[in-house]
Design a protein around this nucleic acid. Sequence first.
DNA 1: GGCGGGTGACTGAACCGCCATTCATCTTAT
DNA 2: ATAAGATGAATGGCGGTTCAGTCACCCGCC
Lengths: 193, 193
Amino acid sequence: MRDPDKPQQIIDAAVRVFARKGYYNARVSDIAKEAGIAAGTIYLYFRTKDDILVTLFREKMTEFVGTVRKAIADEPDAVAKLRRLIHLHFELLEGRPELAEVVQVEQRQGQKFFRGASAHEISSYFALIGSVLEEGVAEGRLRPTLPVKIATKTLFGAMDQMATSWVLGKRGYQLADTADAVADIFLQGVAVR
Amino acid sequence: MRDPDKPQQIIDAAVRVFARKGYYNARVSDIAKEAGIAAGTIYLYFRTKDDILVTLFREKMTEFVGTVRKAIADEPDAVAKLRRLIHLHFELLEGRPELAEVVQVEQRQGQKFFRGASAHEISSYFALIGSVLEEGVAEGRLRPTLPVKIATKTLFGAMDQMATSWVLGKRGYQLADTADAVADIFLQGVAVR
DNA sequence: GGCGGGTGACTGAACCGCCATTCATCTTAT
DNA sequence: ATAAGATGAATGGCGGTTCAGTCACCCGCC
């Protein structure tokens, strides 16, 4: 009778260990110890060490996109949705510093991360942002000629860089406090002139 | 009599090999073969494999910032400088696809890259962007209340994401063609209202 | 101008530490 | 009693790094 939430415990332990030591410096046995199990047990639930990282990201990213999607559904218009999305992006990372560390710094392991496994989850976030931008254009609040794909990447890139700088700067300020400033620049940038 | 441009040859070979196989899949012996020398010879010029990556980045980034700095000096005002900077950022990457692959995808090896060694080179680019923004504020063309640090990260993040997407999308379009759209969004975003 | 020996770059096969992964064995639940 | 999960010591291979040996070149001396 396999414990159904053991994978979850392993992932949670992995987040803490990766955040502390980095992916490459983390031993599989460290994760096991952190989770209070034996190293071999991990292989009952994950194929390889990489698999832990990939699963971790998939799970957190899917959850992240779901949370954001639900939250912005309440907002009355595209502009309000975008502000909420930016705030939430920052708040969710700020609320889980260890996860933020892993996602912003450790996760980006060359090929593995960007191509392949995690591409789907990332593109669903891009799709969400893109659809809100489309909506804004339809509402007449955003430029009718707005290149939506480029605007999507611009916004994501801006948020992602803010988050990365915050993590690298040892989180010496409140990330969420910068959300309005980022939103102001972006929203003015895509608004009708 | 050590060959004074052997390090350069090794770095150039490393760019090609890293671009082709990725940093972790690249053997030191692959780089040696590509450079037409023996594996051991690399260790006369570099301490470790990591050292190759770090040196490569430092050198390319320093050169990059220098090129951009010189080019924008000609421009008459901050807004023109920013447009030029964005174009150049994209053109320089587009002109060296292999280097772009390495810098955008392979280079970001967790801890090593972001913290420590390469931090100085990155922050000098940030400083350059920041100083142009300050100038724009002083000229009265950009918002007087603009949070310059945040705007700097926003612009860098946007450009970086555009570049990364372009590399991951197998460079299926002209990166430089998107420069105007990115510039339009950003410049309208930071302009006086 | 030819010879010998010294210098140091270069070579690449072998080494060796590391750690992900395995599996014979044990534990626990039913 | 049996099966299935859990254990953790042992394994294996991988590849960065080393280093003993080779080679090309230079210099001083006969």
